[in-house]
Amino acid sequence: MSSSVSLKTSSGLLLDMRLLTANDLADVLLLERSVHSHPWRQSSFEDCLRGRQRCWLAESKGTLVGYVVVAHGGGDAELLNIAVAPSYQRKGIGSCLLQYAVDYVKDHADMMFLEVRVSNRKAIELYAREGFFEVGQRKNYYPTVNGHEDALLMACQL
Score class of each variant (00 low, 15 high):
1 M>A: 13
1 M>S: 15
4 S>M: 13
5 V>A: 03
5 V>D: 01
5 V>P: 00
5 V>I: 14
6 S>N: 13
10 S>C: 08
12 G>R: 05
13 L>Q: 09
13 L>G: 02
14 L>V: 11
15 L>V: 08
17 M>Y: 05
18 R>G: 03
19 L>A: 01
19 L>D: 05
19 L>E: 12
21 T>M: 11
22 A>G: 08
25 L>S: 05
25 L>H: 03
26 A>K: 14
26 A>C: 03
27 D>M: 07
29 L>Y: 00
31 L>K: 04
32 E>I: 07
33 R>W: 01
33 R>K: 13
33 R>V: 03
34 S>P: 01
34 S>T: 00
34 S>G: 02
34 S>D: 03
35 V>H: 07
35 V>T: 07
36 H>Y: 10
37 S>Q: 10
38 H>F: 15
38 H>S: 12
40 W>S: 08
40 W>K: 10
41 R>W: 03
42 Q>H: 04
45 F>L: 07
46 E>N: 02
47 D>M: 08
47 D>T: 03
51 G>F: 04
51 G>H: 01
54 R>D: 03
54 R>Y: 05
56 W>D: 06
56 W>P: 00
57 L>F: 04
57 L>I: 07
58 A>D: 08
59 E>Y: 00
60 S>N: 15
61 K>N: 14
61 K>Y: 04
61 K>V: 14
62 G>N: 07
63 T>S: 04
63 T>V: 12
63 T>E: 09
65 V>N: 05
65 V>S: 06
67 Y>H: 11
68 V>S: 04
69 V>L: 09
69 V>H: 01
71 A>F: 00
72 H>F: 02
73 G>K: 10
74 G>E: 15
74 G>D: 14
74 G>M: 15
76 D>R: 13
80 L>W: 03
81 N>R: 11
82 I>A: 09
84 V>F: 07
84 V>H: 02
84 V>E: 10
85 A>G: 11
85 A>N: 03
86 P>F: 00
86 P>H: 01
86 P>K: 06
87 S>V: 10
87 S>Y: 07
88 Y>S: 15
88 Y>D: 07
88 Y>H: 15
89 Q>P: 08
89 Q>G: 08
89 Q>D: 08
90 R>M: 04
90 R>A: 07
92 G>Y: 03
93 I>W: 03
94 G>W: 02
96 C>N: 02
103 D>S: 10
103 D>R: 11
104 Y>D: 13
106 K>D: 02
106 K>A: 03
107 D>I: 04
108 H>K: 10
109 A>T: 09
109 A>N: 06
109 A>W: 06
110 D>N: 11
111 M>G: 01
111 M>K: 13
114 L>P: 09
115 E>A: 06
116 V>I: 07
119 S>E: 01
119 S>Q: 05
119 S>N: 06
120 N>Q: 11
121 R>I: 13
121 R>W: 06
127 Y>K: 11
128 A>G: 08
128 A>H: 02
129 R>Q: 13
130 E>M: 12
131 G>W: 00
133 F>I: 14
135 V>A: 15
136 G>D: 11
137 Q>G: 11
138 R>Q: 11
140 N>P: 01
143 P>Q: 14
144 T>V: 06
144 T>Q: 01
144 T>P: 01
144 T>L: 03
146 N>L: 00
148 H>Y: 14
148 H>S: 15
149 E>H: 06
149 E>K: 07
150 D>Q: 07
150 D>F: 04
150 D>K: 10
151 A>Q: 15
152 L>S: 02
153 L>M: 15
155 A>I: 04
157 Q>L: 13
158 L>F: 12
